[in-house]
Amino acid sequence: MKQIQLPLTEEQCTGLRAGDRVELTGTLYTARDAAHKRMAETLESGGELPVDVAGQVIYYVGPTPARPGQAIGSAGPTTSSRMDAYTPRLLEKGLRGMIGKGKRSETVKEAIVKHRAVYFAAVGGAAALIAKAIRSAEVVAYEDLGTEAIHRLVVERFPVIVVNDAEGNDLYEQGETQFRLG
């Protein structure tokens, strides 16, 4: 298990390979469909993003409200392909990592390689368990979007698996090939 301190650097990204199990510690941000759409509109109109994404990781999640004594409620990943239309532009702005579930488009995978980034998967169905790695959560932008607002999360040993690495490897494709050969 590799331990990584956030924010992510290009060197950290290029040292990761599809299939690596990683624990992230530090600050990351949440954003789902509505927040991505709004960020894209902001960039298209020449505006500044509400969060500087350079070196950052975005977790595709809409966390549920926290219960008393907890930093966050359930925090499981959402389907990443829903953000594919917006991802290349954010990678151009310096985004280094994304966390979600499911496959990415060829366009996104090419952008990951071009910008020396990485796509991680978090385990779907383990939202309550994942929430235990989140130490604090704070809304930092688009509060009107409710659970889809952008949150700043402080995480400790947040478990993920590298799916798409900066060399163009794809864990899902590797698994399919291995299954066919096996």
Rank of each mutant, 00 (worst) to 15 (best):
A31N: 06
R135C: 02
L16M: 15
E138P: 04
A34Y: 05
R67V: 05
E148C: 01
P159Q: 00
T87F: 00
R32I: 02
G73L: 03
H151Y: 15
A149F: 03
Q178N: 10
Q70H: 11
Q70M: 13
R17W: 09
R135F: 01
D20I: 09
E106N: 11
E176N: 10
T30S: 06
G100R: 01
I58H: 07
L16H: 08
G100L: 02
E138V: 03
V113K: 12
K93H: 06
G182Q: 13
V113E: 10
V154R: 05
K37C: 02
V57E: 00
D33M: 05
S74C: 07
P159V: 00
G124E: 13
P63E: 14
V140R: 10
P63H: 14
T177I: 14
G47S: 07
A121G: 12
A111L: 06
P88D: 11
T25G: 03
A18T: 05
I134D: 02
P63F: 07
R38H: 08
E48R: 14
G146L: 14
L91F: 06
A141G: 09
D84P: 09
T27P: 02
A54W: 04
V154L: 01
G47H: 04
M83A: 10
Y86K: 03
A40T: 09
A111V: 04
G124C: 08
N164Y: 09
R89Q: 13
Q178I: 05
A40S: 07
A71G: 13
P68D: 15
S80L: 12
Y59F: 15
G15M: 12
R32C: 07
D170K: 07
G97K: 05
Q56D: 03
R89A: 10
T25I: 02
A131D: 02
M39Y: 05
V139H: 04
Q12P: 11
A111M: 04
F158Q: 01
L91T: 05
I4L: 14
K109S: 14
A54Q: 12
G97Q: 10
M39H: 04
G19M: 11
I58K: 10
S80N: 07
E41P: 01
